[in-house]
Amino acid sequence: MLNYLLRRILLTIPLALGVVFIVTISFDLIPGDPAALILGEFATPAAVAELRTSLGLDRPLLVRYVAYVGDILQGDLGRSIRDRRAVTAILGETFPYTIQLALAAIILVLAVGIPLGVLAASRPGSWIDNVIRVASLAGLSMPVFWTGLVFIVIFSVNLRWFPVSGTGTWRHLVLPAVTLALPSIAVVARMTRATVLDVLREDFIRTARAKGIGESSLLYKHTLRNALIPVVTVLGLQLGQMLGGAVLTETVFAWPGVGRLTVFAIFNRDFVLMQGLVLVLAMVYVVVNLLVDLSYGLIDPRVAYS
């Protein structure tokens, strides 16, 4: 187990190096000079050249890459070329908002998506199954910028239950979290339904039922646990995506998270901020995936880490 963990953690190093390299190259390939953008529409070319030098943009790509990797090893992600703040400070300010929103949404997904899926699977073909299937299809199909605005009109403008946008209280969190969670709830409910139905057809369930185990115990203890591995995999992917920043949800609800920061970094050609962002997001994915892999062992004791 410890060996396994260590190996997984060591494997992230080449991954991180690769990710940083790709970001460095891609900012070199896309047109648009960061220095010209910083100095704005009326700068002289001499000033632009000067700024390119002071940003280190005149150095060859590989030199920049090696220097950046050296900085990362010292815990320094550089300074945003746009507002000159330390990238670590910007990320430290932005990530808590994203984590808050992602956790609230994933809790909703767990609390609503899995029970809905089990409920649908327990009565396949019934009206309740049909309602859940249609509703989840709708949840998947509606774009978040649309559901977000509809929620604002209903719950903020007409009912006045929640603020239109912004941060501050738990009431600010409700609408964005629900909006962000909806498609994931739908995915998880459909996934849970499918896998629970599969497990219900297995021999050991028939045996358990023959032994006279109660339906609810059969469903939640014997079936769900066995059906959970694919569901957890999907949940991990969803959480990874949410932690990567929900650009549309954040935009509609003016939520100051990582998604909007990413868009800002791209449009301003803030390659230093972008490098830091991509690096941290890649690490977030690695950690979430690792947690998912480790949870397999908890769900199914037969899974061995060797």
């Binding site: 605005l149 946008s165 509609v252």
Partner: peptide
């Protein structure tokens, strides 16, 4: 001064 990027909102 609040930042609200979406024009409808």
């Amino acid at each position: 001064f609040r930042t609200v990027p979406e024009e409808g909102a």
